[in-house]
Amino acid sequence: MTTPRMRVKAPKNAIKGEIVEIMTLISHPMDTGLRKDKHGIIIPRKIINKFVCKYNDMEVFVVELHEAISANPLIQFSLVTNDSGILKFIWFEDEGKVYSTTRKLRVS
């Protein structure tokens, strides 16, 4: 499988103490292990099982995802800004693969 495409919509600038909205999306089939392919063979389970957002290396938001999350999981959440720094978004796939991306946030 090709590397999933990660998309993050987060503000670049913010005012200290402001609540900002962050939207993330990763292209992933989220195979539940219930579907069959053309030949009737069950496609094994392979999902993104965890998503973590780190703000200056501190975990601020975590989601445990299960089979009932749609393909190409979209996650939107909010965050209080306090310092300028780096937002890191990490997706954990079954079988141990990890995908991550970062965004800079300037707080004034």
Partner: peptide
């Protein structure tokens, strides 16, 4: 189980949006 969201005081709001099956 569908999902479990873990919030912290840094979340500002206990809000999350996603798409479910």
């Amino acid at each position: 189980r569908v999902a479990s969201f873990h919030f912290t005081p840094h979340s500002g709001r206990a809000f999350a949006r996603t798409r479910i099956r």
